[in-house]
Simulated scan of single mutants.
Amino acid sequence: MMQPRTAIFDLDGTLVDSARDLMGTLNFILAREGLPALPVERAQSLLGAGARALLERGFAECGQTVEPARMDVLYRDFLDYYGEHLADETVAFDGVEEALQTLKSRGWLLGICTNKVTEHSVRLIEALKLTPYFSAICGRDAFAWFKPDPRHLTLSIEAAGGDPTHAVMVGDSKTDIDTALRAGLPSVCVDFGYTDIPATQLGATHVISHFDQLISAIDAITGLTAQPALSK
C-alpha cells in the first residue's frame, strides 16, 4: 500500500494573515510600558519566530533591552492578551481553503507546525473553520523542540500520521525553510508572508505568490501530475 503523502504548513504568514492581531498585542504591551506603537507594516520583519521573539524585536525597535526575568512576565502577559484577540482581524489568505480541499481530496495528510503556542493555534484554526482539514496542529510547546530544530517538523509529520520521507513543508520565512532544509525535506515558500528576506533567497524548492499555485508546485516536487479526487 502506498504511503500517504503529508503537507505540513506554517501558520502565521503562510495560512493566515495575522499581522494586525499580533502587532495589536505587541502595541498593547509597548503602550503599557510607556513606549510608542509600531505600525503594522513592520510585521514583515518582526514576525516569524514566535511571540517571545516578537516582543524582543519590538522592544529593540524602541531602543529598549529587557532583562530575561522581565521578558518572562511580558511574554505571559502577551499570551494572555493575544488569547482574547487572536481572531479579531485575522483571516486565511486567499485560496487557502481551496488548496486544502484539493490536497485532502487526493488523500494527503495535512498538519500545522508553528512557533505559535498550540492552544492559540488550535483556537485560531477553529475560529477560521479550518479544523477539519488538519490531522495535527503542533505549536512550539508540542514537543521538546521547536523550529528551526527539524525535530519539530518531523514529529509534526508523524503526529499527522505521515512519514517524513513522503512530506513537504509549506512556509513563509527563513525559520520555516531552514527547518525543512535541516530535515532534508522539500519546501514551498509563499512570497506574501512575514520575512524581510526575499522568498526567492531562502532556499525553498519552489516559491509561490498565491495559493492557487500550491498544487502545481507540490506536483512538481513529488513528480506527480494532477490526480483525480478520491471517491467518497
Rank of each mutant, 00 (worst) to 15 (best):
V190S: 05
F146D: 02
L128C: 06
G50C: 03
A226R: 01
T205V: 03
G111W: 09
Q213C: 06
L38I: 13
F93V: 03
R76D: 14
R20D: 13
E98M: 09
E61S: 12
V122C: 08
V91L: 00
D172I: 01
C113R: 02
D80T: 15
A51S: 15
G184N: 08
I137S: 06
L22N: 07
G171K: 07
L26V: 05
D80I: 14
D149I: 01
E97I: 01
G184A: 13
L109W: 10
L124D: 10
A19Y: 04
K116T: 06
V66W: 03
A53N: 09
I112V: 15
Q213W: 07
L202W: 01
D219S: 04
T114L: 09
A127Y: 05
A204P: 01
G34V: 04
Q213A: 14
Q44G: 02
L74V: 03
Q201M: 13
S216R: 10
E67G: 12
P148D: 02
S45L: 01
P4S: 13
D88C: 11
Q3G: 07
S156K: 11
A204E: 09
T205M: 05
L100T: 05
V188T: 03
P39A: 04
L153N: 11
Q3D: 12
S156V: 03
A183I: 07
W108A: 14
K147G: 05
Y194L: 01
L30K: 06
T222Q: 11
A217Q: 02
A37G: 12
L214V: 04
T6D: 10
R5W: 13
I137W: 02
A229I: 01
A217G: 03
E158Y: 09
L86A: 04
A87F: 13
A180M: 05
D77A: 14
W108F: 15
R32D: 13
L153A: 10
E33D: 15
I208K: 07
L181C: 02
G107C: 08
L103W: 10
V117Q: 11
S105P: 00
P198I: 06
A180L: 03
P150V: 04
P39H: 05
D10K: 13
F134S: 12
H152F: 09
I157F: 14
Y82T: 09
A183H: 12
I29F: 06
A180K: 09
A204Y: 01
V16L: 09
K116E: 11
A217K: 02
P164G: 08
L46A: 06
I215L: 15
P39W: 01
H152P: 08
H152K: 10
V96K: 03
L54S: 04
D212H: 14
G139K: 12
I8A: 08
T154V: 10
R5L: 13
L74K: 04
I197K: 12
I215M: 08
R57F: 12
Y82C: 07
R76I: 05
T165F: 09
R32S: 14
D94S: 10
T114K: 08
C113F: 02
I8Q: 12
L214K: 11
L35F: 08
G111I: 09
T205S: 14
V190W: 06
P132H: 13
F134C: 10
R57P: 06
K232W: 05
T65K: 14
L103C: 11
T25I: 01
A99D: 10
